[in-house]
Design a protein around this nucleic acid. Structure first.
Length: 871
RNA sequence: GCCCCUGUGGCGGAAUGGUAGACGCGGCAGACUCAAAAUCUGUUGCCUUCACGGGCGUGCUGGUUCGAGUCCGGCCAGGGGCACCA
């Protein structure tokens, strides 16, 4: 019998249109089945999908199809994270409107995604730049505003004077704007913020409940929120040295136990007291000015020397008013953490130590490490930050660090000056409020107005949406909304007088902070429908790149809380299960000139050490470089469309699931893809070849099975068991290996005589294999399912059931160790007692030989696992 | 600097404290073929032995255990996150 080669180019579109016509993946919200919401991070519509998308969406699709087969009502939607800077760059460079560019890209990428055969509910699709979407986002903004979750305050930003825009820190390279190359200025701008810090404690505490999130992501969020417990302490100032009107300075510390080791107080350059002191000192003004010029870049901070300037002001020690400490302005003190001022204890803080060593202020060790003699303990270059006993600290001497912290806290809390305690316990967070203002056109307009009479006024809800004007120009740098002739003008909702619209638009992270909720009722005239969003959320499994482990996930968690608080429903935690996939990486190639070369123009020869690359056209030698994340700049990308065109979507999907554990990086190789494709063909040959000989589907199970049939059935059911488990735990690479093995076993059994029981067992195996392949390679599975004589779709078939009796075996092969080394094997009944096993093991020739006639010292029998004889 | 992860054949990787290397890629040998491709079968950690067998093997090093890739301590290497956060 001849079998035709499986042709994905014909087969895949055919099944895609069958699924589409039957509207198989459109999800009703009202359905008696249990719900399952699986979501992959929606893409930015750059124009082409990349291999990272293929990996991400394949994983999600496996889960969606598997859950459907398990009887769940699955929600698996797709949309577009469509606002953002690249559209405006394209507008400048290619003279296309950001809207046209974006929607054209969406159309191209939608077609690419459809060619992957993903079981998505396309009826719920939306883009965040759809007016219908951002209108609802503006409504949410106003609701958040009314609930006190929106603030307007000044913030320092990186300002590019040429492009006339604010830059993110990542867009500042060596102090220059990434596009303009102009030196970046630090400017204070009034910006819109979401007050995420109101939830600091809750966002931190609730991380403990996210037991289906990667530990790594939880730790990253924990560090980002950065809770520290300490004290806010007020230092009085010596009036003789202090500018008029200033009487004290507050510091934040987590080490109040080291208060007797204090050597100085330091202020941030922007601290009000620093400004007051600068008013009478030109030299200090100059110093503060220099601090401002120091870049915000990490590298600059890393190398920056600890610099300070003595203000001449003296602070009085809170536990000893007779003790004066110099007050410095120091470049390493941050205005926006704590109080913008610190007290320095050099012996037990490295930065403070560096500082005093530079300015010759000396240090007093106040915590002595265990085992050290306090009399000889000195600090020179390295601060001691560990635990120990307090020394040189008067009443605290002999206490542990914790006890001393407690004692100092008690004393300062009960000491008052001017009706206020000198110190208060305080919890500080590293987390800052979320600045969402962007001076850009292609984003969601912030629905606020500026009225000369009434100030900042929200747009009335009945006047929403504030639509982006289409008639804008990108011929000049800056925000086109600022110079639009008419759009800015609107009447004030309060007084009716002329007012100006806010021209800042929202950070695109806002768009992606609630899209998963919108998918539950994507056409509703309100942001959500609470009953529906409560039904679907939380997302049962969210999948995406680890690069969003902090910001996107944290903002979404904040938004969920905000939406709940403003009556839009949903749980506090939007993602019950989170999975961060690894990247798709590829070898890099360079020619003799050092230019990057695409994989498609390189051919590889030889193996191992002999492996060489040459240019496909000229034969010129090519250097094989490091394996790195696919990126356009290194030209080591592979276009998913090429792969799908050559091998079909199933091959690409199968390769993405094979070999590498999903959380780790996967190395894209031609050989690997070719291997995946060979398997596609092998499965088709096997199953289509077998189908002609098999008994019809649905025959009753024979009462008896021969040994071969029983072996096959046992293997099939073991595979169903493990593959089910592996998919549930997202261990796709293991599931793939099991299916390879099953197809090998099935192949080995396919030539056995076609007795009724064997035919039945073979059909069972063939169908189980097809069904288990279906979530991963849905087109191939449909084609095989049809070849096996089914009129219906495998996409609608129920997941195969395990017969528990078949997971058991009567006899097992037990390894026998002597002194921990395997020396023999023992075939014995599963039910044999430990005594029987021990006796049988000791009777083995190999064991006897090694014992040399002596009795064993000990015999360990682990039932159905191993025997270890200790000689 | 702080926090986290990873380290297993030629390669990607399997392995509830219990036979290390499943499965795939690659290699080798064979079958089919006039030949090649495709396909199928066998084999494939390293050393040693004609063979049976034996020895060595999970970055290094110490420990716990009848038994350690897995648990604990100390190193080394690679990767990631945060970073003047008091």
């Amino acid at each position: 019998m001849t079998t035709e080669r499986y042709n994905p180019r014909v087969v895949e579109p055919r099944w895609q249109s069958v699924w589409n016509e039957r509207r198989l993946f459109e999800t009703p919200s009202e359905d008696p089945r249990p719900k399952y919401y699986v979501l992959e991070m929606f893409p930015y519509p750059s124009g082409r999908i990349h291999m990272g998308h293929v990996r991400n969406y394949t994983m999600g699709d496996v889960l969606a199809r598997y859950r459907r087969a398990r009887g769940y009502n699955v929600l698996h939607p797709m949309g577009w994270d469509a606002f953002g800077l690249p559209a405006e760059n394209a507008a400048q460079q290619k003279k296309v409107h950001p809207k046209d560019w974006t929607y054209d890209n969406i159309a191209a990428m939608r077609a690419q995604l459809k060619s992957m055969g993903l079981s998505l509910d396309w009826s719920r699709e939306f883009a965040t730049c759809d007016v219908e979407y951002y209108a609802q986002q503006q409504r949410l903004f106003l609701d958040f505003h009314d609930a006190g979750l929106v603030a307007r305050k000044t913030a320092k930003v990186n300002w590019d004077p040429v492009d006339m825009t604010v830059l993110a820190n990542e867009q500042v390279i060596d102090g220059m704007g990434w596009r303009s190359g102009a030196p970046v200025e630090i400017r204070e701008l009034t910006q819109w913020f979401f007050t995420i810090t109101k939830y600091s404690d809750d966002l931190l505490a609730a991380l403990k409940t996210l037991d289906r999130w990667p530990e790594k992501v939880r730790v990253m969020q924990e560090n980002w929120i950065g809770r520290s417990e300490g004290m806010r302490i007020r230092f009085a100032l010596d009036p003789a040295t202090t500018p008029a009107g200033e009487s004290g300075v507050e510091v934040f510390t987590t080490r109040q136990d080291t208060l007797f080791g204090a050597k100085f107080v330091a202020l941030a350059p922007d601290h009000p007291l620093a400004a007051a002191a600068a008013a009478r000192s030109p030299a200090l003004r100059k110093f503060i000015e220099e601090c401002h010029h120091l870049g915000t870049a990490e590298a600059a901070i890393e190398q920056a020397e600890k610099l300070g300037f003595d203000t001449g002001i003296k602070a009085l020690h809170p536990l000893d008013p007779g003790w004066q400490l110099p007050v410095y302005v120091a470049n390493f003190v941050l205005m926006d953490y704590g109080t913008g001022a610190i007290f320095g204890c050099p012996a037990h803080d490295q930065r403070d130590l560096d500082f005093v060593n530079k300015y010759g202020l000396g240090n007093i060790p106040v915590v002595c490490p265990p085992g050290q003699d306090p009399a000889t303990f000195v600090i020179t270059d390295t601060a001691f930050v560990g635990d120990g006993r307090l020394i040189n600290s008067r009443v605290l001497d002999g206490m542990s660090v914790d006890a001393a912290k407690e004692e100092v806290a008690r004393r300062l809390e009960s000491t008052t000056r001017g009706n206020r305690p000198v110190g208060e316990r305080q919890v500080n967070y590293r987390l800052r409020d979320w600045g969402i203002s962007r001076q850009r056109y292609w984003g969601c307009p912030i629905p606020m107005l500026h009225c000369p009479a009434c100030g900042v006024v929200p747009v009335r809800r009945e006047d929403l949406p504030v639509k982006l004007p289409d008639d804008v120009e990108f011929d000049r740098p800056g925000n086109p909304l600022d110079r639009h002739p008419t759009w800015r003008n609107a009447p004030c909702p309060q007084c009716g007088g002329p007012a100006l619209r806010e021209t800042d638009t929202m950070d695109t992270f806002v768009d992606s902070s609630w899209y998963f909720a919108r998918f539950t009722a994507p056409r509703a005239p309100t942001p959500t429908v609470p009953a529906i969003v409560d039904h679907w959320l939380p997302v049962d499994q969210y999948i995406g790149g680890v690069e969003h482990a902090i910001l996107h996930l944290l903002y979404s968690r904040f938004f969920a809380r905000g939406m709940k608080a403003t009556g839009h429903g949903g749980p506090d935690e939007p993602f019950a299960g989170m999975f961060t996939q690894g990247m798709v990486v590829h070898e890099t190639y360079r020619n003799a000139a050092g230019d990057w070369v695409e994989p498609t123009s390189v051919s590889i020869e030889g193996e191992g050490d002999q492996r060489r690359a040459v240019a496909r056209d000229s034969g010129a030698p090519i250097e094989i470089g490091a394996i790195e994340k696919m990126s356009k700049s290194k030209k080591n990308t592979v276009d998913p469309s090429d792969i799908i065109g050559n091998y079909g979507a199933d091959t690409a999907r199968w390769f993405m699931l094979s070999d590498s554990p999903p959380e780790r990086d996967v190395i894209w190789t031609e050989a690997g893809v070719a291997g995946a494709h060979r398997f596609v063909q092998r499965v088709w040959r096997l199953l289509s070849g077998l189908s002609a000989q098999l008994p019809p589907s649905g025959l009753p199970r024979p009462g008896m099975f021969g040994d071969a049939s029983l072996d096959l059935r046992r293997h099939v059911h073991r595979t169903i068991d493990t593959v089910t488990n592996d998919i549930e735990k997202l261990r796709f690479n293991r599931a793939v290996a099991q299916l390879y093995e099953l197809s090998n076993v099935l192949t080995a059994h396919a030539d056995s005589p076609m007795t009724p029981d064997h035919g039945w067992a073979l059909r069972e195996a063939a169908e189980a294999l097809t069904q288990m392949l279906a979530p991963m390679m849905p087109h191939l599975a449909e084609e095989c399912w049809k070849a096996l004589g089914h009129a219906g779709l495998v996409a609608e078939a129920a997941w195969p059931e395990v017969e528990p009796a078949l997971l058991k075996v009567d006899t097992i092969l037990l390894p026998v160790q002597v002194n921990g080394k395997k020396r023999a094997e023992l075939t014995i009944s599963m039910d044999a007692s430990n005594d029987e096993v021990e006796k049988a093991a000791l009777a083995l020739d190999a064991v006897q030989k090694l014992l040399e006639g002596r009795p064993p010292r000990r015999v360990v029998v682990v039932p159905n696992r191993i025997v270890n004889v200790v000689a």
